[in-house]
Amino acid sequence: MEKKFKFIEHTADIKFQAFGKSLEDAFKNSALAMFNAMHDGKVKEKNIAKIKAEGKDFESLLYNFLEEFLVLFDSEGFFLSKIKKIKIDKKNFKVEAEAVGDDAENYEMHADVKAVTYNDMFVRYDKNSGKWIIQAVLDV
């Protein structure tokens, strides 16, 4: 199976790279990486959440997309299991997604992601591998 994401050494915070054949897949895997930083076991598919985000470029779109999940997590205790549907409007930098997950209180959390940061962030298409690569640092 192809790698969805990986974590990279960082002194204080959590840095990850996420991959995908499409931009949509790379976005999905970024969200998974962020939640994986908090809890890395299996998560049940009990609740449904719909999110929408907009941006001015791919980076701000990613930032806002991930932030919507953090808001859901803090306010409703939603913990992501899987993104079922995702649609990205690449021209207007808009994303809509439907996700399933469970209540965070059913899991042991080992990190508290405070925020997404722009530090070392990129969203790019890598011609050599034919894949989209996303990199971001999370403030924990």
Partner: peptide, 8 residues
């Protein structure tokens, strides 16, 4: 102040 990363 940290010296080692969380992942390591």
């Amino acid at each position: 102040g940290r010296v080692k990363s969380r992942s390591s």
